[in-house]
């Protein structure tokens, strides 16, 4: 069906959960692809399986069946540790509730993904400062997360997700905890990143956010409907 020309290819992928004596089909068999440079929204109601889908694409959650190819790499044929390396190299994740490390400063949080790379310290700082400037937080590098507003924390999370220049940026409800103006600022920032060539896959249940993406994948009861 696909010929590995796409950045991400999902083939006959499904995920079941065991709940007590019964099996829940969180994701029924899905087939779709995402190309390099796309801004894809995955939409659906709560419990539709969109976050599960995002975690599977991110190499965090083993599917029950099917395959996910990223850059022709069969993601779940890799060992757990190899998938950790894959995430380090390919994926940047923006979590719904920011998930910043509370005892690290803004700069340290942004440098976190580079802690396991061989990049020199000066270069790490330079890269972190560059993305912090991009998200407009260059003046608050020494603050701890609890000294920032929600919108600022979200921007730190974005900076941390993009600092390594990952080919794929996954965003789980990035505006879920923000007021409408801050949410708009964050979405503008994501749009800008996408315009610079960043592939973004965003999970949201907010239809207003759909307009920022180039394509929407609707999920309903674990099945996907391409838009």
């Amino acid at each position: 069906m696909f010929d590995h020309l796409h950045l991400i290819e999902i083939k006959q992928m499904g995920k079941d959960y065991i709940s007590g004596d019964s099996t829940v089909n969180a994701i029924k068999n899905m087939d779709f692809f995402i190309d390099d440079g796309e801004f894809v929204s995955i939409m659906g109601q709560s419990g539709s399986g969109k976050s599960t889908l995002l975690s599977i694409i991110g190499g965090l959650n083993h599917p029950t069946r099917g395959n996910i190819f990223v850059d022709t790499l069969d993601l779940y044929s890799l060992s757990r540790e190899q998938r950790a390396d894959f995430r380090s190299e390919y994926i940047g994740i923006i979590f719904q509730s920011f998930q910043l490390i509370p005892y690290l400063t803004v700069l340290e949080n942004v440098k976190l993904p580079m802690a396991i790379t061989g990049i020199k310290n000066e270069k790490k700082k330079e890269m972190a400062m560059s993305v912090l400037e991009k998200v407009g937080l260059q003046e608050k590098v020494d603050r701890l997360p609890d000294q920032l507003s929600g919108g600022e924390q979200e921007r730190v999370a974005i900076a941390r997700a993009i600092v390594n220049n990952p080919p794929i940026l996954l965003a789980d409800e990035p505006t879920g905890n923000l007021d409408s103006q801050t949410a708009k600022d964050v979405m503008d920032l994501l749009k800008k990143l996408n315009a610079e060539g960043q592939t973004i896959i965003m999970v949201t249940h907010n239809r207003e956010m759909e307009k920022y993406s180039s394509r929407t994948i609707m999920i309903k009861d674990g099945s996907c409907l391409l838009s």
Partner: peptide, 16 residues
């Protein structure tokens, strides 16, 4: 737990 989950999610190996 959550913090360790973040480390793992951004690519830290078990050894890290």
């Amino acid at each position: 737990t959550r913090e360790i989950g973040i480390f793992r999610a951004i690519g830290f190996r078990r050894g890290h």
